[in-house]
């Protein structure tokens, strides 16, 4: 149910492996590079339909208090995404991902 382990930045299982959207700090941009394998296909599909798809640049706008959902700007719209979903969206190598505020 995703109740556990929402604080991804502190989770050893995520450290060292490829960066994911949940680790993108507010203000930073990155290019999306696929989805984690555990993500249910219909959820992956919806994320792609909303613009979270390979090659698109996403910007993390801000985080909500209490480790809640984060706001991402993509495809000209802003979406709040729960962290346990964002963690399955993988990010490619740094690309304009230098902490520029936008």
């Amino acid at each position: 149910m995703g109740e556990a382990g929402l604080d991804f930045e502190n989770q050893s299982q995520y450290k060292g492996c490829m960066r994911n959207l949940a680790q993108l700090p507010p203000g930073a941009r990155a290019r999306i590079d696929g989805f984690g394998t555990e993500l249910r296909p219909e959820v992956g599909r919806r994320l792609r339909e909303l613009g979270f798809m390979d090659g698109n640049v996403v910007r993390c706008v801000r985080r909500a208090p209490f480790g809640g959902p984060r706001v991402y700007a993509v495809s000209g719209a802003a979406f709040a995404l729960e962290m346990n979903i964002a963690a399955h969206v993988l990010l490619g190598p740094a690309d304009g991902d230098d902490g520029v505020r936008g």
Partner: peptide, 18 residues
């Protein structure tokens, strides 16, 4: 309901457009 329905009912992601 956690035990009984937790696994059975698949959850969609929490995505809210602002």
């Amino acid at each position: 309901t956690r035990r009984k329905l937790g696994g059975r009912l698949g959850d969609a992601p929490f995505v809210v457009e602002l």
